[in-house]
Amino acid sequence: MKAFGKIEVYVGKIVQETKYIKRFHLYPVDRELLPAFTGGSHIATYVKNGAETIERNYSLVSHPTDRTQYAIAIRKDDHSRGGSVYWHDEIKVGDRLEISWPKNHFPLAFKAAKHHVFYAAGIGITPFMTMMEDLTAEGKSFELHYAARTKEDCAFYDYLMAKYPGKCHFYFSRTEIPKKMTPVTMAEHRIGSHVYFCGPASMVKEFREAAESYGYPSYAIHFELFAVADKGPKNPFVVKLTNSNKKVAVSEEETLLEALLKAGVQAPHSCKVGGCGSCEVQVMEGEVDHRDHFYKDGERGSKKVILTCCSRAKESEKELVLEL
């Protein structure tokens, strides 16, 4: 744990968790202890593929205080940008890669959280694995609702059954008696419950809207998404930067953040999918087409800000002026 910055690890073990999900165990090359982390944390992985570096974020699924190794679980997704396919098809035991320190943009709630309820769809189970470990250690109350196609497709099924008896509710959609996970169970959770969603964008959207309609206060609704919500075409535009006195053109091919970094501007960022708020920049002039899922609806109008990793200038705007 000597230096800050990236950590060099090697793949020590690969486990076929389900037909489409593999679990990778990562060990530190320098044999020092890894940083412990908090439930809900993820790491960025940097895999070298020739000249290209494939950077992807994955939630940790190993125990938060196990400092000898980290584990991540990856679902092979043939429709994705190729990160998961590379991990599944190319990564072998013994391969080396770099990872970031564990970061957490999806922490457990603290204040007035009397009961925690997790809703996971498919590989969305991963951040909850470590949250449940932390809650168990602290003796706190929680339950899990977890949807998968079948028992065989349900990662960590046996582990969860054995470890958290009575706390897990499974929903298998492709079985003889299919069971669907729907938001209605949220109507029954006791006052003071916090709800957490992780899964595909459509699932998260459905559960968020339902939670609001049931009267959950916004501070009790938590969610994590793995990808940028796709909201319309990418138009080209220009940004003028007041602090660095630069003008940067953003093409249809790239995000504002990518253009800024390419131009040598030290633009802050972390998740790159519009979920953490790290890339927020103040807007001095111009209208923003907000494409994040970070701000609450009311905030977008009242704050003059843009999340550079996903949002763009409104179609009608040619130029934004940013405090950067």
Partner: peptide, 13 residues
């Protein structure tokens, strides 16, 4: 405060 919470991350002082 928001900047601290969102950008001061482990390993990145």
């Amino acid at each position: 405060r928001n900047f601290l919470i969102r950008n001061v991350l482990p390993g990145e002082p």
